[in-house]
Amino acid sequence: MENLVVISGCSGGGKSTLLAELGRRGYEIVEEPGRRIVRHELDSGGTASPWLDAEAFIRRAMATALADRAAAAQAGWVFFDRGLIDAAAGMQRLTGEPVLAPLRDAHRYHHRVFLTPPWPEIYVTDPERRHGLAEAKAEYADLLQVYPALGYDVCVLPKTGVSERADFIERVLAQDSRP
């Protein structure tokens, strides 16, 4: 679906802040599945978290991303803080299951994917993000390969203020086909 836009990239690269800005501008936004799952697991005492049961966590992230995609509006830009491909890439890294290849033709998002690069100056951990910057950079390097391999055009976001980043995305999408 050409109106579903993924913002992915390095953990701690400013994705959630950017999504909040896009939401303030009137766009539909979808919060990162992983953060929602971790928050639920912390609140309920569950174990489907990256540090307790990574496979259960990633399987739930994939299911959540599929449900998010199905529930998204059919018109207008919809911005996702990560999505199915991020979760599938994590699953393939963890288990070796070939879950990425089918996503070349199924469950598509807009052809242009925006990636936030590593940005050590703003990187922080929190109760929902416990991994360090080195792990975040490794995941980013993987995503730089995964998205193009699945036929997506990657656009790395500049390290600028949140308003400038949102303006940049709006300009790039205006040059692409409208949803």
Rank of each mutant, 00 (worst) to 15 (best):
T95M: 09
T95K: 10
T95Q: 11
T95N: 07
G96Y: 13
G96H: 13
G96R: 14
G96L: 14
G96T: 13
E97K: 12
E97W: 12
E97C: 05
E97T: 14
P98T: 10
P98C: 07
V99A: 13
V99E: 08
V99M: 09
L100E: 07
L100Q: 10
L100V: 11
L100T: 07
L100S: 08
A101V: 07
A101C: 01
A101R: 12
A101E: 15
A101W: 02
A101G: 04
A101Y: 00
P102E: 11
P102R: 12
P102Y: 12
L103A: 06
L103N: 04
R104T: 13
R104N: 00
R104Q: 14
D105V: 12
D105N: 12
D105T: 15
D105E: 15
A106C: 08
H107A: 15
H107M: 11
R108S: 00
R108L: 07
R108D: 00
R108I: 01
Y109F: 14
H110N: 10
H110G: 04
H110F: 03
H111E: 12
H111C: 06
R112S: 11
R112L: 08
V113M: 04
V113C: 03
V113T: 05
V113I: 14
F114P: 02
L115E: 06
L115S: 06
T116C: 15
T116M: 12
T116Y: 05
P117M: 03
P117T: 07
P117W: 02
P117N: 10
P118S: 08
P118R: 05
P118W: 03
W119D: 05
W119T: 01
W119Q: 05
P120D: 05
P120M: 02
P120E: 08
P120H: 01
P120A: 09
P120T: 02
E121C: 02
I122F: 02
I122T: 06
I122S: 04
I122G: 06
Y123A: 04
Y123S: 02
Y123R: 03
Y123P: 02
V124I: 10
V124S: 12
T125A: 07
T125V: 13
T125L: 03
T125W: 01
D126T: 10
D126Y: 09
D126K: 11
P127G: 08
P127T: 09
P127F: 08
P127E: 14
E128S: 10
E128C: 06
E128N: 10
E128R: 08
E128F: 09
R129H: 12
R129M: 06
R130M: 11
R130T: 15
R130D: 01
R130G: 09
